[in-house]
Design a protein around this nucleic acid. Structure first.
Lengths: 200, 200
DNA sequence: GTCTATAAATCGATAGAC
DNA sequence: GTCTATCGATTTATAGAC
């Protein structure tokens, strides 16, 4: 639906200097499809087709489907880390930083009402593959640990609980907004969360 | 793992009087597996095997896999309705009723940390089947509408928002508890929610 | 190094035996 | 009415051609 072309013709550190952005296209397609269609319902053929890459050719860039999932998780983690670093760079006070994160959440309300939170849905789905430690759990811990830092900088003793509460409020609202297909559930949640931050 | 045998040898309104509890066993197995393994990962063979019914025999009791899913949703809805009716019967005041619901949530913390909220996970997963109105959305609306009634009886103008907030806090905490495999996230959430109800 | 053709396995569903 | 045997479609993965 949306055009996610992060093309960069023959750049980056590939061994041979003869690569177009095929791996990047496959990864971008996988990120979209795993979010919109779900991990289990997305086939490698779907990914290859959206990336405009030959169907069997996926296995040249990824060993297995689980490798694709791992790459998607790492891409999400990199994006979250970059977002948090950007917020830290743009805002000095912990309160402003927390509210900037809430604002950033709010900028994707329509997408989340349609397909759910990218982090939340993938965590929920990957939990069903009973691996010891879910590889998606790191995605959740990134923003939570960061929020805990901010709350701690504000002098809150229960910084860990406040961070969990904020994330839970957001993820729960994302689930309800997605289930009811109603983005306004997320705007209401953002308003309440911001009010709580101001009242600290 | 847990024994869900709602056996009732040849009862209920079947056309012929010659039915053991096979359909009931299949439904009970489906309820468990859809929760623990997920909708997409659960096969009809898995369900038949857990119900100790011949593999192909599922199709005598259910037309298609989607029919099984529909039956599971309806079973969940019936259970939720029964729980809410029971709470209304046992408690007179809206505050006590809301807190009784939170207590009931809390009684399943370990199960939820292991497999997620049965309602939340099925809503999240079924949303990926882009049907107009998700059949699982009714599951979410049942407790939300009921909570809204209680808040309205307490004289809250923003009863709808309070109900959404409570449900979101619970579902978000369930997702985090499941992702981190930590039931204490749910006990912390329940404590906060109860505090909010008392402060009304 | 890249991709086509195909193997191997799995799953939903059906036809028909008992 | 109940269930066995099997079909057809799909999907992951590989072997090997170019």
């Amino acid at each position: 639906m949306t055009d996610v072309r992060t093309e960069r013709s023959s750049a980056a550190g590939q061994p041979t200097g003869k690569r177009q952005g095929k791996r990047e296209r496959l990864l971008a397609a996988a990120i979209e499809l795993l979010h919109q269609e779900g991990v289990e319902r997305t086939t490698l053929a779907d990914i290859a087709h959206r990336a405009e890459v030959p169907v069997g050719g996926v296995y040249y860039y990824f060993k297995t489907k689980e490798d694709v999932v791992t790459a998607v998780i790492e891409a999400h983690a990199a994006e979250v880390r970059a977002s948090l670093a950007d917020i830290e760079h743009r805002h000095g006070s912990p309160k402003d930083r927390l509210k900037a994160l809430v604002d950033q959440f709010a900028s994707r309300n329509e997408l989340i009402a349609e397909f759910g939170c990218p982090l939340g849905t993938i965590c929920s789905e990957l939990d069903k593959r009973h691996v010891e430690t879910s590889p998606a759990a790191v995605l959740m811990r990134l923003p939570i640990a960061w929020m805990e830092e901010q709350y701690r900088a504000l002098g809150c003793d229960d910084a860990d609980e406040l961070a969990l509460e904020l994330m839970a409020a957001y993820e729960g609202s994302a689930l309800l907004a997605n289930t009811m297909r109603d983005p306004s559930i997320l705007t209401g949640a953002a308003r309440r969360i911001n009010r709580g931050i101001d009242a600290l």
